[in-house]
Design a protein around this nucleic acid. Structure first.
Lengths: 206, 206
DNA sequence: GGGCTAACTGACGCATCAGTCAAACCTTTC
DNA sequence: GAAAGGTTTGACTGATGCGTCAGTTAGCCC
């Protein structure tokens, strides 16, 4: 009798995970500073005391929730990308997966905007941020290198520079989508990024 | 009787301006949600009561301070750009003025990051944000059009699309600089943007 | 001077929350 | 079945900070 009907006795890890899950979604929804411990508890159907039982303080919950969100997104991304072998297609798949449509991906983008605002002002956020950001750039860089090995991307492109530019362009476009800049839709964003990839990597290759 | 007329003595406007000036710098320094009315008053050498005398509530001060900062930055920009007549040089000047060096420009970038985070979550911030953002894109677009009239930029470039891309790239690069992403310095950022302008507008013109 | 008003002050009321803690509630083990 | 240890609860505490308001000062006109 491990799992009951309604009141399911959950293991430690489940409780923790549920708290983190609720927390990152609240951050995405309301913003970093508008999340209350009581809100987290309410979403989890538990009490504020329990949140404090698993996490020493509010900052710990918030920081771990950010990490939790980014880690899960990265894992999901990796899994899906691994299935695509052609580097060009893989890069297009990555672009597609990162378009801030409504739903989970949009929420994850909201997390990034919160992270940037926070990291700019509080340097203690930067190490973690930079680790995640580097991971993302590395994903792009590796796909570029793969494409060069496959002979479908221009050999004269510097993978590092391309990654820097593509990530910057993606972030910038995402901001415009999320803040509702007129003329920047999901479609425009995809077009912009696909064009960039074509110009920078595909045009005139071999 | 509260202040309702525009025809107030100068000292009145000075006070308001001083409060707004202190506020936007505090936002840049500590972040939107970490600014206290007491802090603003302290910086201005006045009391919390005075802040409330000029602004009904905290949100009003913060919102107006954002507007104040953006307006002043835009005015400064316009003045300096007007002096450069060659469109290519003007665009390079714009890029240079927007590099988030330490000091005022960096603080203004911090404001933008705060704005984005806020506008993503609270739709009521978007109209004002989009107005400012459109103004910026328009600046870029006009310089592109000017360059095309001067015959120094490629005639086949769509000024609107170029503006969209260049602003996105600038924002993305600025984020990387401000959050301290390794490998992205002020120099790298300038190089990235100058290259973009060259590739997109200058190469093969005429 | 005396009356009037705008500008300013800062202490206080009140709401909001993070974090605490003692008691209650399980689950396991002997 | 009882003790032990882990988990959960929610009322409570203390700190913080917004907004209010009664009171003060300074300028100005008659």
């Amino acid at each position: 009798m491990t799992t009951g009907t309604k009141a399911e006795p959950r293991s430690d890890e489940d409780r923790r995970a549920r708290i983190l899950d609720a927390t990152w979604q609240l951050i995405a929804e309301r913003g970093f500073h508008a999340v209350r411990i009581a809100d987290i508890a309410k979403v989890c159907g538990t009490s504020t005391g329990t949140v404090h039982y698993y996490f020493p303080g509010k900052n710990d919950v918030l920081a771990e929730a950010l990490k939790y969100c980014v880690d899960r997104a990265f894992a999901r991304q990796s899994t899906q990308l691994r299935a695509v072998h052609n580097a060009h297609e893989r890069l297009l798949k990555l672009i597609d997966m990162q378009l801030p449509r409504v739903g989970q991906v949009r929420d994850e983008w909201a997390i990034w905007l919160q992270y940037w605002a926070e990291a700019t002002i509080r340097p203690e956020f930067r190490p973690a941020h930079n680790e995640y950001y580097a991971r993302w750039q590395e994903t792009v860089r590796r796909i570029v290198q793969r494409g060069q090995r496959q002979g479908i991307f221009r050999a004269d492109a510097d993978p590092h520079v391309v990654a820097l530019r593509l990530t910057a362009l993606t972030d910038g476009a995402a901001i415009q989508v999320l803040t509702g800049v007129p003329g920047m839709t999901i479609g425009t964003m995809r077009e912009l990024l696909v064009d960039f990839v074509h110009q920078e990597l595909v045009a005139g290759a071999r």
